[in-house]
Design a protein around this nucleic acid. Structure first.
Ligand code: MN
Ligand code: MN
Ligand code: MN
Ligand code: MN
Lengths: 144, 144
DNA sequence: AAATCAATTTAGCCTTGACTAACTTTAAAA
DNA sequence: TTTTAAAGTTAGTCAAGGCTAAATTGATTT
């Protein structure tokens, strides 16, 4: 009797969750490159101690994460020196900052309290597809 | 010169990220109880093999997760038998299902393709606060 | 120039959430 | 009723992302 994708929920949810796990694997990387970019812009350089303070984690955790980011080609660093974004890191940071801003602005535009929006956007941003982001952006122009 | 919270972005982002980490710690639990509830409703019982198929993970992974859910009081299970929600699990499942539905419906209502909305809602739902959820729900009544 | 302090690194530990491979139990077929 | 297939369990491994405690390095004071 015809396909059921329109009426019933998808039977095969596995790809939905596979994509979810993919997004999770990228979250910390995305937040770090964005924050490193912010620090360079705001303070001239990105030091571990500032990352630790802003993320609310220990210096040891930052160190681990930076090593992973370096391994994956997003940053460069030398012992006891500050952290730099590679081209790849810069590109990702720019994309994530823009996305974050759109999500935040969209939430505020529909009536979410800015304080609350700041909390929610930090998580939501990583799960918003290009398509959904475009819808958010489109709604921003006409806030009614 | 006066406090800067209104004009500038929050200096202290640490609590934003602490809440984000909290949300992450709850995600798998939330998706599992919701799915277990779905399976009981749709098929009469929740078997590991069905959970593994729907989440796209191995039976061993399901087994691990169910043990954790049991430890945390969300489900009961006996070896080689099906899985049941406790009161606590049922309550959480109900809340998560409702939230998921509102997020999905909201996305569709603003013009996101249903297929895309299904993907995005699965991640977004876990990062939507009560306040933001209320705004989403309010917008649903008047979709213009 | 030493001493001190702050920042960073290292080592070792933990939980979550994934996997494979091998084993056991239950259910279905023959 | 035996055999076989499916489902579930167990054991062992891994990476991510947290932690603490201790060691090291670099920067600032004295
Ligand atoms: Mn962000
Ligand atoms: Mn974020
Ligand atoms: Mn859900
Ligand atoms: Mn979900």
């Amino acid at each position: 009797m015809g396909d059921d994708t329109a009426v019933n929920p998808r039977h095969n949810k596995a790809e939905v969750f596979a994509r979810l796990r993919d997004a999770h694997a990228r979250e910390v990387t995305e937040d770090y490159v964005e924050m490193i970019g912010d620090l360079i812009a705001e303070e001239g350089e990105a030091r571990s101690v500032a990352l630790a303070e802003r993320f609310g984690v220990t210096a040891a955790t930052v160190n681990n994460t930076i090593k992973r980011l370096e391994r994956d080609g997003y940053v460069t660093s030398r012992p006891y020196r500050s952290i730099f974004l590679t081209e790849k890191g810069e590109t990702l940071a720019k994309k994530c900052r823009a996305r974050h801003q759109i999500v935040y602005n969209f939430l505020v535009s529909i009536g979410v309290d800015p304080e609350i929006a700041e909390f929610d956007a930090e998580g939501i941003e990583h799960h918003v597809s290009e398509e959904t982001l475009a819808v958010f952006e489109g709604r921003l122009d006409s806030p009614r």
